[in-house]
């Protein structure tokens, strides 16, 4: 993949560069970012601490005691000049996330469906029909911003955010969908909830989802939710 006119390398901090590969939230930029992260991870010199992909950019954090800012910049430029980063054919792993839609699990499902001019079952099934890509993880440990939402399901955020959203809540905010890993405040519209632990700092792999992973939601009923909740405890 050759560099495009959008490519920029800017100082994000004295110990970080921001590599920007596009200027919009679109599938092409995202694929380019995830392919580029794979390449950078594979070729990173000692002293590169973190690579943080987002929709169209990658944060590159380094240890300034081991690497100079100029060295890191030169490495980034040399990688951009090479064509080693090829678009991944199938993306990352595909992870199935069971979700109980509506009722106590998704208190906004009915209202949201009414706003969108459909019934609750249709909204839930259309939300579960798509395959999503983890564009980035931010806001909180393990919180995935999922791209690929059916544009007809885009919903404005709540005017007044909730102070307390249960862990595992599956929600829509604007043109994106996501999952709250931990009880927290938030303004997205709650459609359902998963019993899976999105983030557990005690696990060898603390985050269930990684940037670039694909996600499918599988609707489950309240009994299955409770059963799965027991298993994952």
């Amino acid at each position: 993949m050759s560099p495009t006119p959008h490519v920029r390398i800017e100082a994000l901090a004295d110990d970080a560069w921001l590599l920007t590969l596009g200027d919009a939230i679109d599938a092409v930029s995202m694929a380019r970012v995830h392919a580029r992260v794979d390449d950078l991870r594979a070729t990173a010199p000692a002293g590169i601490l973190d690579l943080v992909p987002a929709y169209a950019s990658i944060g590159v954090f380094f240890d300034p005691r081991r690497l100079g800012a100029g060295e890191v910049h030169a490495w980034l430029q040399s990688r951009l000049a090479s064509d080693a980063a090829r678009r991944r054919e199938s993306g990352g792993a595909c992870i199935e996330v069971p979700v109980a839609y509506g009722g106590e699990f998704g208190p906004d499902l009915e209202d949201a469906a009414r706003e969108l001019g459909m019934d609750a079952e249709t909204l839930a099934s259309r939300h579960a029909a798509a395959e999503y890509t983890v564009a980035m993880i931010g806001f909180a440990p393990g919180f995935p911003y999922l791209a690929g939402l059916d544009p007809a399901l885009a919903l404005p955020r709540l005017a007044t955010p909730r102070t307390r959203i249960p862990a595992g809540s599956v929600a829509i905010g604007g043109a994106q969908t996501g999952i709250y890993p931990r009880e927290s405040p938030g303004g997205w519209r709650l459609l359902g909830r998963t019993p899976l632990a999105l983030f557990d700092p005690g696990r060898a792999s603390p985050a269930l989802l990684q940037p670039g992973d694909r996600v499918r939601f599988r609707p489950v009923d309240a009994d299955a939710f409770a059963r799965l909740g027991e298993v994952t405890k």
Partner: peptide
């Protein structure tokens, strides 16, 4: 802006 990485000091 399109959401991107931030750092302490941003």
């Amino acid at each position: 802006a399109v959401s991107a990485a931030v750092a302490p000091g941003t």
